[in-house]
């Protein structure tokens, strides 16, 4: 953990608070538990941050579910994606170990379905307040007066440039 505090803009809705444990899937509008857990495993295989808890990947899939609930085209693509990763080898994606999961994902990299899932994972995983906190991104600042008095020029491991440069 870095020595910062991350903030979301107070005008935005607060981060979603999912139940701990297997019950988290009950918060979803569309995905069934198998689809949801498979997508969580895919998100973690794509972006395997050892230090991040399962709940940040679940929140990412929660956002996929919201996308799918809004757009039938996206819902269909997520469903196709899960069929693709489950059908690639004789065992379901969830049952595979990391090396086989990688093999399956590399095999479908060129598909539209993979691109939607990979891009959406980046879109939502790295927009998560807990991830910001973990990786040292402080986020919204205007409501705190910006960074002018909160370290915009506090880097001290290089010499300061001459004044007015």
């Amino acid at each position: 953990m870095s020595a910062i505090t991350a903030h979301k803009d107070p005008k935005l809705p607060p981060p979603v608070d999912l139940p701990e444990g297997a019950d988290w899937v009950k918060a979803l509008a569309l995905f069934d538990p198998h689809v949801a857990e498979t997508l969580v495993a895919v998100a973690r295989t794509l972006y395997p941050h050892e230090g991040l808890p399962e709940r940040v990947y679940r929140r990412t899939v929660f956002h996929f579910d919201a996308m799918a609930a809004k757009a039938p085209g996206a819902a269909q693509t997520f469903a196709e994606f899960v069929d693709l990763v489950d059908g690639a080898l004789p065992m379901a994606f969830l049952e595979l170990t990391e090396s086989y999961r990688l093999q399956v994902l590399k095999g479908i990299e060129a598909t539209t379905a993979f691109q939607l899932v990979q891009r959406s994972t980046v879109r939502f995983l790295y927009d998560d307040l807990e991830v910001w906190q973990a990786f040292g991104y402080e986020g919204a600042s205007v409501h705190l007066g910006g960074y002018v008095k909160r370290g915009f020029n506090d880097l001290d491991w290089l010499p300061d440039p001459p004044p007015g440069v």
């Binding site: 870095s2 910062i4 794509l46 972006y47 395997p48 941050h49 230090g51 990688l102 994902l105 990299e109 691109q115 990979q118 891009r119 994972t121 980046v122 879109r123 995983l125 790295y126 927009d127 991830v131 910001w132 973990a134 990786f135 040292g136 991104y137």
Partner: peptide, 25 residues
Amino acid sequence: LPTTAAFMDPGWWGRDFVSVIEQYA
């Protein structure tokens, strides 16, 4: 962090990407 991750190399995934973006600070 959100757009650094998105635009650093769209399509890049895996442990190498992770090792870079974790050092965002």
